[in-house]
Design a protein around this nucleic acid. Structure first.
Length: 556
RNA sequence: GUCCCAGUAGCUCAGCUGGAUAGAGCAACGGCCUUCUAAGCCGUAGGUCGGGCGUUCGAAUCGCUCCUGGGACGCCA
């Protein structure tokens, strides 16, 4: 329970007591009391619309209800300094904010743990994200998925869930054959042979790199080899190469997975047939046209889906069902998958599978990451994986930097299309929100260094007397909200609220910094109190940035 | 054709469970550095929340409908 929550609960309890005392409603009739933060400061620190909600039960006008409620309210008990009734019946509370200074010792003690809560109650959640095919470079869509998935995982972890990050390696399907054939073509071409690329071949630069590596290591050894043998070798070689590259790119992007799950392992460990049998047993499958079908329409899909094609091979769906069964067998209570927008049509059948396996459809949550459009010099940069001309994650890391990418990709709610402005991300100016936030952190660091040099030390004994100015209170309130913001963002899978939060906090810091001098030799007590506040802000900004995967520099 | 996402200030976007005069940032305009980093701060201006109908004390938010943009609809993965 945080200090802010304790205060809010106290206020809610007093409101409830007042309602009963004024005989406006019985305890059972009272709806959940909602405290909201008014946008305007003249509307107090908190407001409630309970008088409007009670209008029907009490059969009175909202304003009248509000008046009777306020009359019975124990203002002292709820730390209220003033109550107003406004508008159609809002009750506005002005709180004695001295309780806020109690936040500082808590933050300084918890340090890098500040913000963590236990709201998730240790629930086991698995997050599968990126899961790009090991057939080419990671592009912008993957970068967004990586940022959003990783930050969501960080948030869930901080909110007390037990999180596992997993990458599903699609190393078993047709695309891997294509990879082998593409490498083969590039290898032969590199040695001067006229050799066609396969129709759905991969045209990326990475394939040329692999071919070059092969030529360097083996010269023309493979030219005369049996094509089947050659392709098998290239397949393994290419897969290893691509996977190593994926892992390196993601690690450099500060995204680390707990588990790399291989699709092939499902075949090797014979996990697919048992899953298939289970669906058969439960009566969800049938034969038609030489194929085996899964009756997903039983679960609201608009069409049944094929599990085994009439050539005897599986569709993509079949091992994926086995994979998700495996996840559930591992004891995860919730599975969150981050998918690109192009997989949207796949959700219904996967949810059908989850239900057919005997779980509620809410067990699987699919978060769709909408497309990223890259803009440079005000123009849209065309992307195409097929021609290999897409901008890669690696290139963007080198060009705009990791901090800006991590921040920008999480900045917008992930179900909306994102315009990524390269010039803005690169710019080291006030247009760039990443710099704005980092600058706030760096400013505090410099300030603390100066304080040390001048012999000032933070002291927690003077907080209540010196931190109740408007700007300081704004900061304190924002600091106090941090744990709740994390918990809510985690629950709602809304990582973009974290960038919003830290931006607002930075803005309040800059505002405070300009309005009030921290180091003041004439006011030693005030200086000590403010230094403590600055330390608390520094910790909170750093913790927030850490959740997003952005560095908090000491100087800029 | 069916489904999904989006449409909010000139631009990019927030807006949580329906609440008060719809908010930020950038761009525009006007101020603030002999003083802890001006990569900053303060102020001004800017809106028919795509259109319409409905639900209600109250709608950007919920429902219906239409318009516009993007995406998905395979025995591909």
């Amino acid at each position: 329970m945080t200090i802010v929550q304790t205060m809010q609960d106290q206020l809610k309890a007093e409101i409830k007591a007042a309602i009963i005392k004024a005989e406006l409603a019985t305890e059972e009739q009272i709806p959940t009391i909602i405290l909201e933060k008014p946008k305007e400061k003249v509307h107090g620190d908190y407001a409630t619309n309970i008088a409007m909600q009670l209008a029907r039960v009490a059969k009175k006008a909202p304003r009248q209800i509000a008046e009777q409620l306020v009359e019975q309210l124990d203002q002292k008990q709820a730390s209220i300094t003033k109550v107003d009734i406004a508008g159609p019946g809002f009750i506005n509370f002005f709180i004695d904010n001295s309780y806020l200074t109690g936040l500082i010792p808590v933050i300084l003690t918890e340090a890098d743990q500040y913000g963590r809560t236990n709201t998730g109650l240790g629930e086991k959640v698995q997050i599968e994200f990126v899961s790009a095919n090991p057939t080419g470079d990671l592009h912008l869509g993957h970068a967004r998925g990586a940022s959003v998935g990783d930050t969501t995982a960080n948030l869930l972890d901080a909110a007390g869930y037990q999180v596992e990050r997993e990458f599903y390696i699609n190393d078993a399907g047709n695309q891997i054959n294509n990879l082998a054939l593409s490498i083969e073509a590039r290898y032969m071409q590199a040695l001067g042979h006229d050799f066609p690329m396969p129709e759905d071949g991969y045209h990326g630069k990475d394939i040329l790199d692999i071919a070059a590596e092969l030529v360097e290591k083996y010269n023309a050894d493979f030219v005369e080899k049996d094509p089947v043998e050659r392709q098998a070798f290239f397949r393994e070689y290419g897969l290893k190469f691509e996977l190593a590259k994926l892992k390196q790119d993601l690690a450099d992007f500060r995204v680390n997975f707990d588990n790399w799950f291989s699709e092939t392992s499902l075949y090797k460990e014979d996990k697919i047939k048992p899953a298939l049998h289970l669906l058969e047993q439960k009566g969800y499958t049938y034969e038609d046209g030489g194929a085996t079908w899964f009756r997903t329409t039983d679960f609201g899909d608009d069409k049944d889906r094929v599990l085994i094609k009439n050539d005897g091979t599986y569709t993509y769906l079949t091992p994926d069902i086995a994979y998700h069964k495996n996840k559930l067998d591992r004891g995860f209570k919730t599975l969150i998958n981050f998918w690109g927008a192009d997989h949207h049509g796949y959700i219904a059948r996967m949810k059908a599978a989850i239900q057919a396996l005997g779980y509620s459809k809410e067990t699987l949550e699919v978060e769709i990451i909408q497309m990223v459009n890259l803009f440079e010099n005000g123009e849209k940069v065309k992307m195409s994986k097929r021609t290999g001309k897409a901008v890669t994650l690696r290139e963007l890391m080198e060009e705009v930097g990791i901090d800006a990418m991590r921040y920008f990709f999480v900045m917008r709610s992930s179900d909306a299309h994102l315009d990524f402005d390269m010039d803005l991300a690169k710019s080291e100016s006030n247009e760039n929100p990443v710099y704005y936030v980092q600058y706030a952190h760096a400013r505090i660091c410099t300030l603390l260094k100066q304080a040390e040099a001048k012999g000032f030390e933070a002291d927690l004994n003077y907080l209540a007397d010196h931190l109740l100015t408007e700007k300081a209170e704004d900061l304190l309130k924002q600091l106090g909200d941090f744990p709740q913001v994390i918990a809510d963002a985690a629950k709602d899978r809304a990582p973009h609220r974290m960038t919003q939060y830290v931006f607002d906090l930075a803005s309040m810091l800059h505002s405070f910094y300009n309005a009030e001098k921290v180091l003041d030799p004439d006011e030693p007590e005030k200086t000590k109190a403010r230094l403590a506040l600055m330390q608390a802000v520094k910790i909170t900004i750093a913790n927030a940035l850490k959740l997003i995967g952005v560095n908090a520099p000491d100087q800029m």
